[in-house]
Amino acid sequence: MDPHLSPESRAQFPSHNEPRVWLITAGDSPIGISVARQVLAHGDYVLLGLAHSVLERDERRRNGFDAFLAEVEEHRDEGWKQRMKAVPLDIRMMGECQAVVAEAVAAFGRVDILLCCTSQALIGTVEELSASQQTLNLVRDQFEVNYFGPLNIIKAALPHMRREHTGHIMILSGITAHIGTPGLGMYCAAGWALEGFCDSLAYEIAPFNIKLTIFQCSIEIGILTNLVTSVPPIFPAYSPANNHAPLFRGILNHLVPRLPDAPSEGVTTNPNTTSGSRSSEQDNPRVSSIENGPFSSSEIVSMHPPLSSAHLEVLVSETVYAITSIGGHENPPSRHIVGQEGVASVKEKLKTVSEELEDFVQASFAVDVAADSDPTPPAMGSFSGPF
Rank of each mutant, 00 (worst) to 15 (best):
V21S: 03
T181R: 13
R258F: 00
I323K: 04
I223G: 04
M84A: 15
L247G: 06
L255C: 06
T229M: 03
R92A: 15
E78S: 07
H304K: 00
E56N: 10
M93N: 14
T166L: 13
D372E: 14
E8D: 13
G124V: 14
T273W: 00
V39P: 03
F143W: 09
V54R: 15
H165G: 05
L315V: 07
K347Y: 04
A370P: 00
A157C: 15
K349W: 04
Q133T: 12
E313G: 08
S6L: 15
R10Q: 15
P207W: 03
F360R: 04
V314H: 10
D141I: 01
V46E: 05
E355G: 03
L194S: 12
E330S: 12
S302Q: 14
M161A: 07
R335D: 05
E96P: 01
G328A: 11
G183T: 04
T225L: 08
S9Q: 10
D77Q: 14
N270H: 04
E128M: 10
T324R: 01
Y238I: 04
L315P: 01
V367W: 07
G385Q: 09
T269E: 08
A206Y: 03
G191P: 02
A190I: 13
R37Q: 08
L312Y: 06
V126I: 13
H75I: 00
P386F: 08
P3W: 11
S334N: 09
E127I: 00
I214P: 05
R62S: 07
R140S: 13
M94T: 09
R57T: 07
G385R: 10
S302H: 02
D141P: 00
G49K: 08
G385M: 05
M1C: 05
L23E: 03
L212K: 09
E355S: 14
S298D: 15
L172C: 12
V231H: 11
S119R: 06
L40S: 03
H178S: 12
L136E: 12
P285I: 11
H168Q: 13
I210C: 09
I221V: 12
P386Y: 11
V101R: 03
A366R: 05
F383M: 02
T181E: 15
V72R: 01
F295Y: 13
K155L: 13
G180M: 05
F108L: 08
R335Q: 13
L122M: 11
A370G: 06
L194H: 06
V367C: 05
F383N: 02
T25E: 13
S280P: 00
F387L: 08
A379N: 12
G109L: 09
V346W: 06
N17L: 15
G124N: 10
P236G: 02
V343Q: 08
V145H: 07
A70K: 11
